[in-house]
Simulated assay, not measured.
Amino acid sequence: MRTRTIDTPNARRLVEASVITGAAIVGQPGGWSVTLRIGAQDTPLGTQRDDRPRTWRSLDSCVEYLRRELHIVRIDGIDASNYSVSAGQRTREDAAARMKAAHEALSHAEWLQQKVEAARAGLDDGSNQRIEPDQWEAIRAAKRRQLDSP
C-alpha cells in the first residue's frame, strides 16, 4: 500500500496549527524529499497535482523551500542512504541548451520590438506611409498573380 502524501497548502496549515512536530529530509534517486511528522506518523510532502512525493535536485533548494514556504527552520535529520545524483536528472548540457534557446528568443523579441518601434516612429515623422487595407489587398493580389504566372 502506497503512503499518502500531504501537499504544501495543507502542510502550511498544519504547521500554523502546530500539528507538525518534525521534519526530515530523505535522499531519493535523483534528489531529496521531505517527510513531515504528524502525530506518530511520518507523511511525505507531495506535489499538488498528484499523490507523489515532491523531490528537489538540490539539498539547498529543499531546505530553502522548507524555510520559505512552510516556515520550518528546524530539520530533525537528513538521511542520504538512498540518495543518488544520476537517476533521471537532466544533464548540464540540457540546461545549457535551454538557456541558449531562451537567450535567442529574448534577443529575437528585442529585435522585433525595435522594428515595431522604428515603424511607429516612421509613421509619426512621415518617413513611413500607412497602407490602407484595400491598397494592401491589391498589392497582395498582384504579388500572388506574379508568383502564380510561369
Results as ranks from 00 to 15, higher is better:
T5W: 02
I6L: 15
P9T: 07
A11I: 09
A11D: 06
R12A: 11
L14S: 15
V15K: 12
V15E: 10
V19E: 15
V19T: 15
I20E: 06
I20D: 04
T21K: 13
G22H: 05
G22E: 06
G22P: 07
A24K: 12
V26I: 12
P29K: 09
P29F: 09
G30V: 02
G31K: 03
W32M: 03
S33M: 11
R37N: 13
I38L: 15
G39V: 11
G39R: 09
A40C: 05
Q41H: 10
T43G: 13
T43M: 15
L45N: 08
G46Q: 04
G46T: 06
T47A: 11
T47F: 10
Q48A: 14
Q48P: 11
R49L: 09
R49K: 07
R49H: 08
D50I: 12
D51F: 06
R54S: 07
R54T: 03
W56E: 01
W56C: 01
W56I: 06
R57G: 13
S58H: 08
D60K: 00
V63S: 04
Y65Q: 04
L66S: 03
R67Y: 02
E69G: 02
E69N: 07
L70K: 00
L70M: 03
I72E: 10
I72M: 06
V73Q: 11
V73C: 09
V73E: 15
